[in-house]
Write a protein that binds this DNA or RNA. Structure first.
Lengths: 220, 220, 220, 220
DNA sequence: AATGAATGAGCATTCATTCAT
DNA sequence: CATGAATGAATGCTCATTCAT
């Protein structure tokens, strides 16, 4: 599991016996994320988290003070880094607002929707009331910035006469809610239902954008 | 809550027991729904459910075999009755597909979104993986019929040249996802976030329909 | 459930509505005995006792103060009456000690071993430590008198030169233990084991007496 | 209970945890046996079992899946090992059948009757109906083999003309029932009754054998 | 007298957390 | 660092007992 010979890397880490101790917290958080998303916070056993990360239960407490601290770390470390990347794009972007919007939603899907982070919205929705402070953090650091990106894009389009004038907050929902629901579905009902195995995300995204952009387009 | 006029009222009023047994199951399910939605299934104590329904913990077991049975009852009894009503409307409706769609979404919001049943989508999303059989039931008896209503409406509109031809399943998501997210929000992040107290559901619905219907409209 | 019209019976019992209230305690004790013997005191539910007696659980408390009081009644009322009968026989008996002994054991088996009272030894053995006062009562009023009957018989036989001189207490065990074990077996292991369906109690009793009396006989 | 000579004893001695985990299951089963025998299965609290074994209630579940599993272990682990030993003796024995029978009964008493295992017959009798599968196991693995040993002995004696011909199954009961009752008594009525403190097991055994062997002896 | 809905103390079981090794 | 045995508070569930009807 460890890359065998990082030729000169051994200078920095002298002890070859302790295996990737550096990576432990990440492995634990990944395991916790998967199980929290699948079963919810309360129904997830730390035994299972530790087992999934390949360590013993006691080890978990070397890195996290409590189950709740682990939950907070999962949320904080999980999503914020992913968001920074997207921010840069909007500022630098040169094309039409429509194209940028499409770009943003596709990026969101690629970065979040499809990967393991896609479970975070479901998790946050499920547990917000049990962890108000985490919810507030998530709101301020994920939802608000995320919506701001979309708001800027929409406003740019309106200013350019590309989009017609509508309530921006609602419009944001119209474009993002279907994607959110899709991500949530993947981690909730999806695995329990007779899968329309034929599901084609690519096509779904295109159709959704088709309708939404058409609904926003400014005519005449 | 006590029968209004106990002619001579007996002063003491100390009759805390032996009340409307008929209503018990409903009271218990209402209490359970509220707490399951707020905290999730695993994190909800039956003590609290019983207390909220104004009975003792043991009483709960006179009506439900187990915590899980209570959960199932909450889902089954909660949503199916509400769905039947909506079904009749579509068949009987005479106006344009747009108007029917608007009618349906407003009815959904009035019947489900706003009332206590509005928490069920959040609950079902949170617990689906822990109760696959209930999830399947919910899918077959709520989601499938609900989507069918919308599908019929959209197809009627397309046949009449009112809507343009798009993938129906995706279009359903586009119109329903924002409302679902709104309902979910009310029972998850909503209470934890600095409320834009100014929130106007009426206006939200209108704007959403405006964009979505415009995006579906058939032009020339 | 009430016999409709016992035409002339109403003379003796004025209230036709209250059904055999006289017999209630006995019915309840019989039901309790059967279930206590089968499952033990702690594992027996009063619901089941009441159901078996055909009344509601509350009714039980009209006749017995508590589960423990019911247990005491089951023991006290159950066995003592049966013992009085046997006492008379020995005093009146005229034949040989061997014949009397045989008579006693057969009477014991007929009165106790075979009928529903046969479970009492098993029950008393199982619960003695949990109900020391009942155990003491049972010892003084059942075991001591019972053994005294056997002791008198054996001593009569020794005095007459019919039996050889042995320790009377031990000899009592030798003659009674196999019968006791047989009764106990019927209410414990018996129903769980591949039954030697061919079991012939009659023959068992004869063989046992054959060996025991032969072992006690005085020779030369 | 603590190992006698901890050479330097470390003064503080404050190590109540992390002790011989190897011995735990045995300690727990011994504690459970004692309490199950005393109070019965249902009336025994796992708290008390754990306390008697010097551990907390949770620890019990590290070694046994449930209260019922503990019960099964108590029966299975308790008696079978003790039975193997006795089996060897009969095969190897060289003397008369009478002497072997005496030897067997004395061995039974020494191995089982007197020690803590002596409570198992009472326990099994009390709980057989509640645990039919355990009862069947006990029957097949304890009672059947045990009786077979006695049957072989009796048949050997008959073949040698030492015993007269009687029904073997009944004869087995005649010789074993008094001992069984004695063992049962020790764990049931015994502690509740005014003890004939003078009780002499040695003498009891001798008298019993005296009568029983005399009853089986073949004359002329 | 009889009922059965309601109660609440009691117990089996689970699991986050600790700590000696 | 890492372990996993041990803990004990928490919680689902049961059932003897009560009491309004």
């Amino acid at each position: 599991m460890t890359p065998p010979s990082d030729t000169n890397a051994s200078a920095t880490e002298a002890a070859p016996r302790r295996r990737r101790k550096e990576a432990r917290p990440q492995e634990l958080m990944a395991a916790a994320l998967a199980l929290f998303v699948e079963h919810g916070f309360a129904a997830t056993r730390l035994d299972d988290v530790a087992a999934r990360a390949g360590v013993s239960k006691g080890t978990l407490y070397l890195y996290f003070d409590s189950k709740e601290a682990l939950f907070e770390a999962v949320i904080r470390e999980g999503i914020v880094p992913a968001l920074k990347e997207a921010g840069a794009r909007v500022a630098a972007y040169q094309g039409s607002a429509s194209a940028l919007l499409e770009e943003l939603l596709k990026a969101w899907w690629a970065l979040i929707g499809e990967g393991p982070l896609g479970g975070i919205p479901k998790l946050m929705i499920s547990e917000a009331r049990n962890f108000p402070s985490v919810a507030e953090y998530y709101y301020q650091n994920v939802i608000v910035p995320g919506r701001r990106l979309l708001a800027l894009t929409l406003e740019r389009g309106m200013a350019a006469g590309e989009f017609r004038g509508v309530d921006v907050d609602t419009a944001i929902d119209v474009v993002i809610a279907p994607l959110l629901m899709l991500a949530i579905w993947r981690y909730s009902m999806g695995p329990c239902c007779p899968s329309d195995a034929s599901y084609d995300t690519e096509r779904y995204l295109r159709t959704h954008l088709d309708i939404a952009l058409d609904g926003l387009r400014c005519r005449g």
